[in-house]
Simulated assay, not measured.
Amino acid sequence: MAATSNPAIRNLLTLDGAVSPAGAGPSGGASPAAGRDRPITLDDIAVKTLTVFGVLTASAFLTAFWELQFLALPALVIGPGIGIFLAVRPRPSAALALAFAVAQGVVLGEATRFFDGLHPGIGTQAVVGTGCIFAGTLAAYGTRVVRVSAKVTRWAVGTALGLLVLLLANLVASWVFGADLGLRGGGILAIVVSVAAIAAASFFFLVEFEAANRFLRSGASHRWAWYVAFGLAMTLVWLYLEILRLLSYLRWW
Rank of each mutant, 00 (worst) to 15 (best):
A103G: 10
A60T: 05
D44L: 05
F65P: 00
V88T: 13
L62C: 07
P21W: 09
I122F: 01
S59F: 06
P26L: 13
G23S: 07
L86R: 10
K48I: 00
G105Q: 07
V107A: 09
F85S: 04
I40E: 09
T49L: 02
G28K: 08
L96S: 01
L108P: 04
A87P: 03
P74L: 07
L76T: 10
D116L: 05
L71S: 07
V47A: 14
A97K: 03
D43T: 12
A103R: 06
S59E: 04
G131M: 08
R36H: 10
T51A: 15
L96Y: 03
H119L: 06
I78N: 04
F85I: 00
V107Q: 05
Q69H: 15
P39I: 03
L62S: 13
S31Y: 07
A103M: 12
A24E: 15
L108K: 07
I133M: 08
P32Q: 07
A97T: 07
F114W: 11
Q125A: 14
A22Q: 06
T49P: 02
L76G: 15
T41F: 02
A111C: 06
V128R: 04
V106F: 03
L71V: 05
D37Q: 12
L86Y: 01
P26F: 11
S93F: 10
L118H: 12
A33L: 14
A95D: 08
G123H: 11
F115D: 01
A75G: 10
S20A: 12
L68Y: 10
T57G: 10
F100Y: 15
L98E: 08
L76A: 15
P21H: 12
I84S: 00
V55Q: 11
A95R: 10
L68D: 10
L50W: 08
L50C: 11
G28Y: 09
T112E: 01
P92Y: 04
F114K: 01
A103Q: 11
G105W: 04
A101P: 11
D44F: 03
I45Y: 05
A58I: 13
V77I: 15
H119T: 12
A30D: 12
G35M: 06
V47E: 10
P90D: 09
G121S: 06
A87S: 15
V107H: 07
I40D: 05
G121F: 08
W66K: 07
I78L: 15
Q125L: 14
L56T: 05
A94Y: 04
G79C: 05
G83V: 02
D116P: 04
P21L: 14
S31P: 03
V77T: 06
G23K: 05
G131L: 11
A126C: 02
E67S: 15
L71N: 06
I40T: 10
G81L: 06
I45K: 09
L118R: 13
L96V: 00
Q69T: 13
R36P: 00
P120R: 06
G28A: 10
I133D: 03
T112A: 13
A126M: 05
S31T: 13
D37L: 15
I82P: 01
V106A: 08
P80Q: 04
A22M: 04
L108N: 07
G54Q: 01
R113V: 00
F85A: 14
F61V: 15
A33T: 12
L42F: 08
L86W: 00
A30W: 04
T51Q: 09
A72D: 13
L98G: 07
D116E: 14
I133T: 03
L62N: 03
V127A: 13
I82S: 02
K48P: 01
A75T: 05
